[in-house]
């Protein structure tokens, strides 16, 4: 079990980058997706807490970290500012659950799935590799990212912690 208490929380639509030491947490991910970028050679990493697949869904001015298509280029450029080499950076995705299944029209693509698909597309466009995923399903997740060794612990209600 990792210690979750003193980690900095990355709120919805926000992003954080850390170097060397530090822990970041994302709490209560439903259909949102946490995108984690990490360079193991320099121990630099960051998380974007993506809420929606595309910035075209916003009505007015909104935070770029809220949308998959704008969050991932932003997070990558912020990670690159901290002396990382692009070829060492890998991406991992956590979240994108399909909650409340029974009250959704059949055949409709869920926001969680749309977020996951949009994140994968945006990551592919930046040329990064997806090193791991813990996505989909019907249940919410919380995650703890430790930048020292790059581990991501994922918690689901009533289940043992697992690592991505």
């Amino acid at each position: 079990m990792k210690d979750w208490a003193d980690a900095d929380t990355v709120n919805m639509g926000d992003f954080r980058v850390v170097a060397g030491t530090g822990r970041l947490a994302v709490r209560g991910l439903g259909s949102c997706v946490a995108v984690v970028l990490y360079d193991p050679t320099t121990s630099v990493g960051g998380i974007a807490h993506v809420m929606l697949p595309s910035h075209t869904l916003a009505r007015g001015q909104a935070k770029p970290a809220k949308f998959a298509d704008t969050a991932i280029p932003l997070l990558l450029s912020e990670v690159m500012r901290l002396e990382t080499r692009r070829e060492n950076v890998t991406a991992r995705l956590v979240g994108g659950a399909r909650m409340f299944e029974t009250v959704v029209l059949a055949g409709a693509l869920h926001m969680g799935e749309r977020n996951v698909v949009a994140c994968r597309t945006a990551i592919r466009e930046t040329g990064l590799v997806i090193a791991g995923e813990d996505v989909g399903g019907h249940r919410g997740r919380s995650l703890l990212f430790d930048v020292r060794d790059g581990t991501i612990a994922v918690r689901m209600l009533g289940e043992v912690e697992r690592y991505v």
């Binding site: 439903g30 259909s31 909650m99």
Partner: peptide, 27 residues
């Protein structure tokens, strides 16, 4: 009312999904 759908999960996950999945207002 529609048929009820029950989830037992994290409060944040439940609330945000209730808005993002069905609502049209995302701001």
């Amino acid at each position: 009312p529609s048929v009820p759908s029950l989830v037992i999960d994290l409060a944040g996950a439940v609330l945000t999904t209730a808005y993002l999945n069905f609502g049209h207002d995302r701001d």
